[in-house]
Write a protein that binds this DNA or RNA. Structure first.
Lengths: 201, 201
DNA sequence: ACCTGAACACCGTTCAAGT
DNA sequence: ACCTGAACACCGTTCAAGT
C-alpha cells in the first residue's frame, strides 16, 4: 500500500529534489515562492514540477506532511504527561507556534479546517483533527472544557489566535497570552477555586 | 486643512474615477484585483494610477476609508443604546461581519492593528482604535471586561475571530458563536449571577 | 503638472518535441 | 513514461515622450 506504482528512477529523484528545494524556497520567500525558481533550483523543467504537483497547494502539502504528522503525534506525547485540560492548551500553544514559525503552514492548516476543503487536504488534515478530537473530548470528560464545543471549532479558533499573534508581532511571543484569553472562554463557569464540581443541593 | 493643494481638474477626476472602479474591482475579484485592469476601466494610463496611489495598499485604503470611519462611528451609536459590556460585543460583531463581507477590509484593518504598521495606515486605523478604546474602557469601568486587557488586543482577537469564522464558511454565520466563546474569556470570573461586585471584606 | 502607453522583468501554465 | 524548455497570457512597475 506504500506505493501504488513504483516511479521510474529519474522521476523519483526529481520528485524528491523538488520537495527539497521547495522547502528551502518556502522558508526563504514564504508560501508564494516562485514555482519556476523551485524547478530551476531542482534542475528540472517547469513542466516536470507541474507533472508531479498540479498546483501550489499540492507542493506545499508534500513539503509539510511530515511537520503536520509530527504535530498530531505531539498531542499524544503531551496527553501522557499532563492532565487533559492543560494538555489541550499546551498542544494548541505548540500548534499555533508552528503555524507562525513555519511559513506556509498556517494557510495549509487553514484549508484543512475549512468547510469545503479539497479531498487532498482533508486527508492531510485528518490526523490533526483526530488529535484535536482526542484532547478536547478528554478535557470535556474531565470537565475543564465546555461540553458544547466541537474540536473543529477549537482548531479554527487556534488558527484565529495564531493570526492575532501574528498581528501583534512577527514571531509568536503573544500566543500564550491570546490563547489564555480564549481558553477562559472554553472552560465551564467556575463556581469554586478548589477541585471537584461539588453538588449544589 | 481639507485640501493642502487643490488638484488640477483632470487629476481630480481621474483620482475619483480610479477609486470608483477600484471599489468595483475589489468587490468583484477580491483585494488582489489587477491594478492595470482598474486603470483601464477608469480610462487612464497605468502610470496615472501609480501617481495617485504608490501601491495597492494606498488604493485599498482610499477605497475603504469611508467604510472604516462608518465602523468607528457605529461604536458611539451602539454605546448610546446598550450597556457597555453588551455594546462592546455588539460592535465587535458588526466589525467582524464587515471584515468578512467587504473583501479586502480584513487585510486592511489587519495592517492597521499590526505592530509595525505604516504611517498611512495608522492614520486610517486610529479612529477604529479610538472607538475600541472607548468601548473597552467603559466596559472595564462597569466590571464586565477584565481590567488587564488592552483595546488593541481585543481588536486583534476580533480579527482572529473573523478569520476563524471565514474558515467555517464563506459568510459570517459563525461570528456570534466564536465571539461568544471569546468574550467569556474577556469577562472577569463571575462569583455571582446577581449584579454588583459586592465588597468581599 | 499631469497623463500616456510602450517597455521591462517576472510570474504561472501549457504543450510540442524530444529521450 | 517522463522530461525539456520555448511559448503564451498575464501581472506590477517604470519612465521617456507628450500635452
Amino acid at each position: 500500500m506504500a506505493q501504488v506504482k513504483p516511479m521510474r528512477a529519474d522521476a523519483r529523484r526529481n520528485y524528491e529534489r523538488l520537495i527539497e528545494e521547495a522547502a528551502v524556497a518556502f522558508a526563504e520567500h514564504g508560501e508564494g515562492a516562485s514555482l519556476d525558481d523551485i524547478a530551476k533550483r531542482a534542475g528540472v523543467g517547469s513542466g516536470t514540477l507541474y507533472r508531479h504537483f498540479p498546483n501550489r497547494q499540492a507542493l506545499l502539502e508534500a513539503v509539510y506532511v511530515d511537520a503536520i504528522e509530527a504535530i498530531a503525534m505531539r498531542a499524544d506525547e503531551i496527553a501522557a504527561r499532563l492532565p487533559p485540560g492543560e494538555a489541550l492548551v499546551e498542544w494548541l500553544n505548540e500548534l499555533s507556534e508552528r503555524m507562525i514559525q513555519v511559513r506556509g503552514l498556517k494557510t495549509l492548516l487553514g484549508s484543512a479546517v475549512t468547510d469545503g476543503s479539497s479531498a487532498v487536504l482533508t486527508a492531510c488534515g485528518s490526523s490533526v483533527k483526530g488529535a484535536a478530537t482526542r484532547l478536547v473530548e478528554a478535557a470535556q470528560r474531565e470537565g475543564t472544557v465546555r461540553p458544547d464545543v466541537e474540536p473543529i471549532e477549537i482548531l479554527r479558533l487556534a488558527h484565529g489566535v495564531a493570526t492575532a499573534s501574528e498581528l501583534a508581532n512577527g514571531e509568536g511571543k503573544h500566543i500564550r497570552r491570546y490563547l489564555s484569553l480564549l481558553t477562559e472562554g472554553l472552560r465551564p463557569e467556575r463556581r469554586r477555586a478548589d477541585g471537584g464540581p461539588g453538588p449544589e443541593n
